[in-house]
Design a protein around this nucleic acid. Structure first.
Length: 915
RNA sequence: GGGCGGUUAGCUCAGUCGGUCAGAGCGCCUCGCUUACACCGAGGAUGUCGGGGGUUCGAGUCCCUCACCGCCCACCA
């Protein structure tokens, strides 16, 4: 890149090569120390409110994927704009230890080495994990830099570092003391593969074609012996849980079973007499209307069991094999046991029916194992009171969720929330700071070394045993917005940056993470952790499918950066998206984004190379002298003023896809296609005063400068590279990253509706002439004499732009007429007529081409038909009294003018074709 | 079972308060190496805005309903 310290008006290399520029520019940002809120190079205004983004810390488990890239880009866009608005910005990098995710990954790694968690043991396993994490950590942080993320590296945090650990201990201890954390035996979701419990959110209901079996239970007679004649049939999809049955339930109002309620049945194979109970939970029309009750292995049965005071019987072990309570089936895996039991029932003649049954099976989000509901003594968080305050925060507007449609699911989830099981039987994570004494007393302590004695009986710490379990990863993630600021200590950062401004993440972790941060943040700090929750959509493969490594349809963001550049990736990910909606990502988008960057680069190259010699190469940027501008420059500045305002608003509204669309149009369609093309003519017009040429150039520089600023959040490297070569103003810093965001108010001074309308009419004329030439198959490069009829109000503008019109429409020489008579008199046979609004042009005849003539005629006919149709519609509306009476006056007025214009156009076209 | 998205050009998608909104990019067709850019320029074609009702002077836009696709939540064994 251009490395001269002043770097003003330097020439840009022919091509922008990401590989050469990106690393160097990132280094310059780092050296300038602009990322931290108080960095030496930061130009933050301390009197302005800080702008803080809470970033979802990526898991330490591996490389970053395209979803991380989108997250990073959106956040970087916001933080860069805030920085340019001179707000002190805090965007803090972090990593999550992801206990279960990390263990799944590491288990696979060590399995390849012939080791396992069991063979290594807790201590060696954790050493191994630390080594692994040390590596991936560096990879991930390096990748974040490749994205261009302007993170405050001085504040990098990890959910397992000392500060976070202290926050976790403190948070849990407080919750315990407030009776918001409790330990109890309850039915939890057990993953036999991961050998841990998981939260409700980590259980994925998966459709499966199973079987519904009908099984006959024998009632006991008065002597307690099975009655061969009297049976009751129950329907089940899980015959292996028969062994844990404690009752058979029927609906209280079911006449079929009224007589048997209260009698006993014998549980097959284990020969346990259990009662027939009546409970409204039973659906009479499902299966046989009789339901077996297995409280230890089914959540609903558990509830039913407790209602009837029935003790659960656990028949399965942690590995999902049947235990001693399963009698003859002890030791068998759950599915092997199922087959054996079915065979045995069949043999006994008690298997009545087996029919296919579509159902949902809970599977582990991580391992895909079928989740087994099991009874375990574990820690839970009482979520209702916490959720109530989170709901209050969104209802009162303390926190806004965007897009708004997510409020509904938010409300629903937090209203129906159940207590949160936070115990995990894993090794990698924060160990639960609870100690148990031999008498069963519990002592919870936030001290690093644990309690000195049992809280209840005073037994010394040596006799206490710490809970083996660790916390659900999301518990420490839930503390992230404030643990990263030093909580529980009253740090300066905490005072200054809590609550944060924006929490940005994918909608898929709204419950896992956002809800937990809200609940815990409000609880511990009495204030919601952020003003706005902005949820983005998921990045999908071009086919619409979820990207997955096994399917092989992933786009690796780092590969994309290597190949096409970080700016292109960033732009591609954001361009055209809308909040909360998924996007399909493809190569095409990347290429389109790269082309846009290339366009901007070349436009800048042109401008820098077109500097009038009268302006010194190192001249500081000054505003153009308005008295020496042509209409096209006034048009360009006016368009830019509108763009600045629109982009600014879009950014405020989190409409980033809209912002890039506006900038794309302004840069390509307005600045390059017209602005530069018009300006070329003026800049090379030796007949113009030097001051005019200078003003024209400064106008180009001015708008380019504004575009670079607006585009910087999206294309940080490219814009920084160009900016280094452009003239700077007296108040400008060395680096664009800390330059001021364009002020819509200031730009609005340049709005010039008159110039816009006038130049737009001229642009129309040029387009129409080009169109006519194209149809007439006139070679593009060929110059033809032309005549134009110019309405009086446009005469001045036209005169100024005439050289450009001549060049752009290839009408040379060009004669302008203000009188129709003169215009008509100048006509020669065979010439081509062009109509563009009230402007008319004529292209001198070349070699006669009847086919082209016919084509042109056909086109005019089409145009006439169109105009007539629109005219009829407009007149119809105006004739409608209801319309003129009820529509707003402005709309009616608009219809009148458009009708008048259309009428004029129809008349002209008719004259042309028929007259 | 409940809820939420989506359905607009061949493809990917914008479209705010109902009123020049029938749009963009890519692709396609025809020209063109005009001294910023072929990662380009000029021009062109393509639509019952998923179907059906309704509200309104006026509906991709609001309401109802149906269809299909996707997602989230949920204790019919």
């Amino acid at each position: 890149m251009t490395d001269s310290p002043s770097g003003r008006s330097a020439a840009l290399p022919k091509a922008y090569l990401p590989a050469e520029f990106e690393t160097a520019i990132y280094e310059r940002w780092l050296t300038a120390d602009v990322f931290a809120p108080d960095g030496a190079g930061s130009r933050a205004d301390p009197s302005k409110p800080p702008f803080t983004i809470v970033q979802p810390p990526p898991n330490v488990t591996g490389a970053l994927h395209i979803g991380h890239a989108l997250t990073a880009d959106l956040e970087d866009v916001m933080i860069r704009r805030a920085r340019m608005l001179r707000r002190p910005t805090l965007w803090l990098p972090g990593l999550d230890h992801a206990s279960i995710g990390a263990q799944v990954v590491l288990d696979k790694l060590i399995a390849a080495e012939g080791e396992s968690r069991a063979s290594l043991g807790r201590e060696r396993y954790l050493e191994r994990m630390n080594a692994f994490v040390e590596e991936t950590r560096e990879t991930i942080l390096r990748q974040s830099r490749r994205f261009g993320s302007s993170l405050d590296w001085s504040r990098t945090r990890f959910t397992m570092d000392e500060v976070s650990s202290k926050a976790v201990r403190t948070a849990f201890t407080r919750l315990y003391r407030e009776d918001l954390a409790y330990r109890t035996e309850a039915l939890i979701n057990w993953c036999p593969g991961c050998r841990t419990s998981v939260s409700d959110l980590e259980v994925l209901p998966t459709p499966e074609s199973g079987t519904l079996w009908t099984i006959r239970y024998h009632l006991l007679d008065a002597d307690g012996r099975p009655d061969p004649a009297l049976t009751i049939s129950v329907a089940t999809t899980r015959p292996e849980t028969i062994l844990g049955d404690v009752a058979v339930a029927v609906h209280p109002d079911d006449p079929r079973y009224a007589a048997v309620v209260g009698r006993q049945v014998l549980v097959p194979f284990v020969d346990r007499p259990v009662p027939i109970i009546a409970d409204a939970v039973v659906q009479r029309d499902f299966g046989t209307g009789a339901l077996k009750i297995t409280p230890a292995h089914d959540p609903e049965d558990h509830a039913t069991g407790s209602r009837h005071g029935l003790a659960p019987i656990t028949v399965m072990d942690d590995d999902a094999s049947l235990n001693a309570a399963a009698g003859p089936y002890a030791g068998l895996d759950r599915y092997a046991a199922r087959q054996r039991i079915l065979a045995d029932l069949e043999a006994a003649g008690d298997l009545v029916e087996a029919k296919p049954h579509e159902m949902l099976i809970g599977r582990c989000q991580r391992s895909n194992d079928v989740i087994e509901p099991r009874l375990k003594t574990q820690w839970f968080i009482r979520t209702k009171p916490l959720a109530a305050r989170a709901l209050e925060a969104t209802r009162t507007g303390q926190t806004t969720i965007l897009p708004g449609r997510f409020v509904k699911v938010w409300e629903h989830w937090l209203t129906e929330i159940r207590d949160w099981n936070i115990s995990r039987q894993l090794w990698w994570g924060h160990r639960i700071p609870a100690w148990y004494c031999p008498d069963g007393h519990v002592t919870v302590s936030d001290q690093v070394g644990g309690p000195s004695a049992c809280e209840a009986c005073g037994r010394p710490s040596a006799e206490l045993v710490q809970d083996d379990d660790i916390f659900d990863t999301w518990f420490s993630s839930g503390l992230w917005p404030f643990s990263t600021l030093g909580w529980p200590d009253e740090t300066a950062d905490l005072r200054r940056f809590y609550p944060g401004t924006v929490m940005e993440t994918g909608y898929d972790i709204i419950f896992f993470w956002v809800a937990r941060m809200m609940m815990l943040g409000i609880h511990f700090l009495d204030e919601a952790p952020f003003e706005t929750v902005y949820l983005h959509g998921l990045v999908r493969a071009g086919s619409g499918a979820k990207m997955s490594k096994t399917v092989g349809n992933v786009v690796d963001p780092l590969e994309a950066i290597d190949e096409i550049g970080a700016d292109a990736l960033r732009f591609a990910l954001i361009h055209g998206i809308s909040p909360g909606n998924d996007q399909k990502f493809s190569r095409d988008k990347l290429e389109s984004a790269r082309n846009f960057g290339n366009k901007l680069w070349n436009a800048a190259r042109f401008v820098l190379g077109a500097r009038p010699p009268s302006i010194p190469a190192d001249a500081g940027r000054v505003p153009p002298d308005p008295d020496h501008l042509g209409p096209s420059e006034r048009w360009l500045r006016s368009r830019m003023a509108a763009t600045v305002a629109a982009v600014d608003t879009a950014m405020d509204d989190f409409a980033f896809g809209e912002a890039t669309r506006l900038l794309y149009d302004m840069t390509w369609s307005a600045y390059c296609d017209w602005g530069l093309e018009f300006a070329k003519v003026r800049l090379s017009d030796a007949g113009l005063p030097e001051t005019d040429r200078e003003a024209t150039w400064w106008a180009l520089v001015e708008v380019l400068d504004g575009l670079l600023r607006l585009l910087h959040p999206f294309l940080p490297y490219l814009t920084e590279a160009i900016w280094a070569a452009t003239p700077h103003g007296p108040d400008d810093p060395e680096l664009l990253i800390v330059a001021d965001w364009p002020d819509p108010e200031a730009w609005s001074q340049l709005a010039d509706g008159g110039s816009e309308r006038a130049v737009d009419r001229v642009r129309d004329l040029i387009s129409e002439v080009r169109n006519a030439r194209s149809i007439a198959k006139i070679v593009a490069a060929e110059r033809r004499p032309g005549d134009v009829l110019v309405p009086p109000d446009l005469a001045a503008t036209f005169a100024e732009l005439a050289p450009a019109i001549g060049r752009m429409a290839r009408l040379e020489p060009l004669v302008a007429h203000t009188e129709r008579v003169a215009f008509l008199a100048a006509e020669r046979p065979g010439s081509l007529a062009v109509i563009a609004g009230e402007l008319e042009a004529r292209i001198a005849a070349g070699a006669a081409d009847p086919a082209a003539d016919l084509a042109e005629r056909a086109r005019l006919e089409r145009e006439l038909a169109d105009a007539e149709r629109h005219l009829a519609a407009a007149r119809g509306r105006l004739a409608n009294e209801a319309f003129t009476a009820k529509a707003p006056p402005a709309v009616v007025e608009g219809a009148r003018t458009s009708a008048a214009e259309l009428a004029e156009q129809v008349a002209r076209l008719t004259l042309r074709l028929r007259g």
